[in-house]
Write a protein that binds this DNA or RNA. Structure first.
Lengths: 334, 334
DNA sequence: TTGTATGCGTTATCAT
DNA sequence: ATGATAACGCATACAA
């Protein structure tokens, strides 16, 4: 190309890759030619020669605002390291995840950020070879899975400490589908925290559902039908919590006067809500950022990239207060 | 590679690209070898030889749930045509958009889906060469820009017809930033529809702000401070509408009894809201799907891909009703 | 129907 | 410090 101007292609390549190896004089000459000719190295050729795509798959089970924030962090980190992110929507189909992994094998991308705890079949066997992979936002029990996430059980503890600190004794949990480890962990945290507070646990205090508004709305009604009459609810995510608020209203209960509700995630759309939902914040951007940083190291064959747990934080807003009936503890929340 | 088994690489290449050109017998032989050896064509080599990446940039000014739904449609179409989508977050920086365009010049992607009306500097000059580009969800006035979007002015008409049909006479508009053409079109539609209904227009009936809750909340207060006292509000998006509801509550107004409010977008998080917001639906998934389909054709050098306008639809929920004071028209809405 | 040979635009290894 | 040249793995025009 620019070699037509006296030099060989090798020299051109060098001024771009290792400028110090070339005589300053010719370097400038080449630089100028690059400038005037508007030369850009062909990325495909580079990729083939180096055998790297500088692409990472971002595999989600479904598109959601939660993943969007994670993606934001991923994109930021990717940009810093010269990577781009490939959106891969599995649409709840494990088979499609498999397909994405085959794409990696076909040199379509260098690694994958897996936003789900369910592994594709090909990764399950003990001697299966894993392409560079980071499990994101979801815990996993396979020891080969490097993960970046929060401690869901601990987050549940944080929420429960707040509720107990307010003096609540009748606390229930509305959880997500138990097939996900994160749901199980939140539930476990709920159970542990109850015991830590000297409160009795019973399976009747927990209802499992989906991560949606409807689940929360129905669950709250079910509790009262079953004679449970909680004064506080720990929901497995914000949608469920919002549903619980709606259900409470439907029963003629005021929030937080008659019943306190704590959510999980601290999603952006909560800003538009009244009353402001007390919830547990998950650092979604940071999770994405750290995950991508680790993936880059993994791709570079760094042997000691380890899992990472990011801290959660309670965001106290307006849906929690001391219980109306029973002794109103004056301990500060937390 | 598999050529080590009797044949030449060309044959292998052929069974994958044009199977009919090869003798059924050898075809099977090759297929089986491919199967057993777990052979996958190296995508980078293919890409270099064909000079195509099968990648499309999805350039957004900022990550938002709105774009997420568009992305969903894009991803669907991309998958159908063997493309992948590169997430490119410009972070409100025009310079970054420019950078993404340079990446496609460097053969990093084949085309771009531009989710903003602002063009990067390099595309502005009349003789500038445009790489395959589809402008998505945002209208643009450059004739070179093929766009897939809705007719914002018409959508405003739809909303206003509903309000007028209910008997409202004092209708105001809370708009988004006027630097975007879509905001200007919605505002224009508002103005036109008012005149169509024989209602007087005045600049005082419009407040410009950002696409957020705060804008809506402040605006509603401002209207009353200015003595406007509207009975209905047409908001430029759902967040503004939600803010308007909040502002109305703050003023002691009930929705829809004292004031009707119409949003724009019909975002998913509305499902969690009470009262249900009446709003104009934008077919986000379809927009993305059609845009990507068109981009593929554009990349294939199809000369006659044209712009597309998708229809909007009014979603009547609970925030609109006839005005309390004044004659209550009994015409059916719409 | 199949093989040969060249090109795609870099990087990297030897030479010089 | 620079040039020549062989990979990189496939597609394709041309031969056979």
């Amino acid at each position: 190309m620019a070699a037509a101007l006296g030099l060989s292609v090798a020299t051109i390549s060098r001024v771009l890759a290792r400028p110090e190896m070339v005589k300053p004089e010719t370097r400038k000459r080449v630089m100028k030619a690059i400038e005037t000719m508007g030369y850009r190295p062909n990325f495909l050729a580079q990729a083939l020669a180096r055998s790297e795509t500088r692409l990472a798959f971002f595999i989600v089970p479904i598109l959601s605002p939660f993943f969007l924030d994670v993606m934001d962090g991923v994109e930021q980190a990717a940009q810093e390291d010269g990577y781009f992110v490939l959106m891969a929507n599995a649409r709840r189909d494990l088979q499609r995840i498999q397909t994405f992994y085959e794409q990696v094998a076909a040199r379509r991308a260098d690694g994958v950020l897996l936003l789900t705890g369910l592994l594709p079949p090909s990764l399950i066997p003990p001697k299966a070879v894993w392409p560079p992979t980071i499990i994101v936002a979801e815990p996993i029990d396979d020891p080969r899975g490097i993960t970046v996430a929060v401690d869901h059980a601990e987050a549940a503890h944080i929420a429960l400490r707040h509720l107990c600190g307010l003096g609540h004794k009748k606390i229930v949990h509305i959880g997500g589908p138990l097939r996900t480890l994160s749901s199980r962990e939140r539930r476990r945290g709920f159970e542990e925290a109850l015991r830590d507070a000297g409160l009795p646990f019973s399976p009747k205090l927990v209802i499992e559902g989906n991560f949606d508004v409807e689940t929360g709305e129905k669950a709250i009604v079910t509790f009262f039908e079953n004679g449970i009459e909680p004064t506080a609810v720990f929901a497995a995510n914000d949608e469920i919590a919002l549903g619980a608020i709606r259900g409470a209203h439907r029963l003629g209960l005021r929030v937080p006067d008659d019943i306190s509700i704590v959510g999980f995630d601290n999603q952006h759309f909560l800003e538009a809500f009244e009353p402001g939902l007390t919830t547990v914040n998950i650092p979604r951007f940071d999770i994405g950022y750290q995950a991508m940083k680790r993936l880059v190291r993994k791709i570079a064959n760094d042997k000691d990239v380890s899992s990472l747990r990011l801290p959660t934080e309670l965001i106290v807003r307006e849906t929690t207060a001391p219980p109306r009936i029973g002794k109103k503890t004056q301990k500060k929340p937390m």
